[in-house]
Each structure stands twice: as structure tokens, then as C-alpha cells.
Amino acid sequence: MKIKKHVFVRLADTSVILGQRLAEMCSNGPTLEEDIALSNISLDLFGRADELYKIVAKLEGDKFTPDDYVFRRNEREYYNIKLVEQPNEDFAWVIARQFLHDVYAREVFTQLSSSKNADLAGISQKVLKEIKYSYVHSKDWMNRLGLGTEESNTRLQKALDHLMKYVDELFAFDELDKTYLADCEKLKSIWFKEVDEVLLESNLKRNPFPPLSMRDYRDGFHSEHMGHLLSIMQYLPRAYPDAKW
């Protein structure tokens, strides 16, 4: 499916893929309460994706529905940040991924909330409330795991060391980003400042790593995890293309 690269697609794809990863945690969390919390965040993300795909559909003259976008595109046609497709290796990965995402998404939608595009500004207002809640949840868990036990600290540090590799691309802004985001450099500086603060208070580090030759999500590049995620998610509409669900 050929669709125009668009900032809405990036945001929508990032939401749906992270939503799917969190849905994987349903009946796999450390407590039942946490199953419910992660499901809630997942539901917010699916709802957000749906709204954003509706805008995309409108822009493309209603050729496709949100479900077409979700269920009928392959890896190379998806434009989510690679951070969110990383797997749930353990609960520390879930929390680290969520926290890094939440700080980023909160700043992105804060900037978009003053966008001239009325649809986008409207959605951003609603989304911000959801992200603020999710942020509190993920930050609290960063503190708990970082300061809890030696084991939890080690696990969280390990998760961070892996996930940080997928952070650089967030800030490799292209022209499209710059059209929509009011202040790209500010986004980047706030992100690093805040993440570093929380890491410091949680007894965690942002370890340096050598420059990576990793291609940009903006061109539909992914880690190998992505194909497996899609093959599960898209199974039914792909297997029964004539069926209505």
C-alpha cells in the first residue's frame, strides 16, 4: 500500500505498535493491578492511533480506512520509531521503553497542541492528558526499579543500555518534522535534560555507545522484531482478505 509519508502516519504507527507491545503484557504483568495499568495505556494508544489514521485517511481522500493502514501494510510501509517495536524482554524493558517514549511523546504533542492544523491541535490536547498519566506511571516505576533492589537496578540498566540505541533517530529531524514541530532543538534538549534527571535520581546511567550505522525510521527501516509483530497482528485480515470483521 502506497501512502504519502506524513507526520501523522509516523505518530499513528508509533502509537499502534507500542499499543500492541503493551497488549502483549496482558496477563503477563508482575501483578494483576499492573496488567490493568498497562492495558489502560495500551487502550489509550490504540484510540490515539485510530484518531490519527482517520486524519491520514481524510488527507488521502478516504481511499483507505484506519484498519487498512494497520492491517494491510508491510514492514517497509510502517513509519514508527524503532524504540517502540523493541520486545518485552522483561518488565524492566517495558518500563524503560515506556518512559523514554513518554518523555518524547509528551514533548511532541505539547508542540503539536499549538499547531495551525485544527484536527491535530484538538487531538494533541486530549492525548497530552493520557501521556501525562502514562508518564507518571512509567517514571514511578523507573524510581522503584532503579532504587529497589540490586537485581532490579541491574535489569533496568541493561534494558536502558539496549533501548538507548534507538534514541538518536528520534532527534534526526527531517523537513517534515520541522514543518510540524515548533522547536525541534528544544524537544531534544528537554528530552535529554529530563531523562538524565530521572536516571540520576534512580541511580541509573546513560552509558555512551559508539556511533551506530542504523537507518532511519522515517524511511521505513526497522529492527527484525517488527516483522514478527506484524505477522501476528495482521494474521486474520491477511488470511481472509474477503472477510468483514
Binding site: T31, E33, I36, A37, N40, D140
Partner: peptide, 20 residues
């Protein structure tokens, strides 16, 4: 009632359990 290890967690768990 709700379970939780600390105050913040108890509040969040209560929010998610009783005010969905």
C-alpha cells in the same frame, strides 16, 4: 480495597480499578 506497595502505587491502582 486495593493492593499496592506504596502510596503512589495504591492511588494509581485505585484509579485504574475503580474509576475506569
Amino acid at each position: 480495597s486495593v493492593h499496592g506497595y506504596d502510596k503512589k502505587m495504591a492511588l494509581q491502582n485505585a484509579r485504574d480499578l475503580y474509576t475506569r
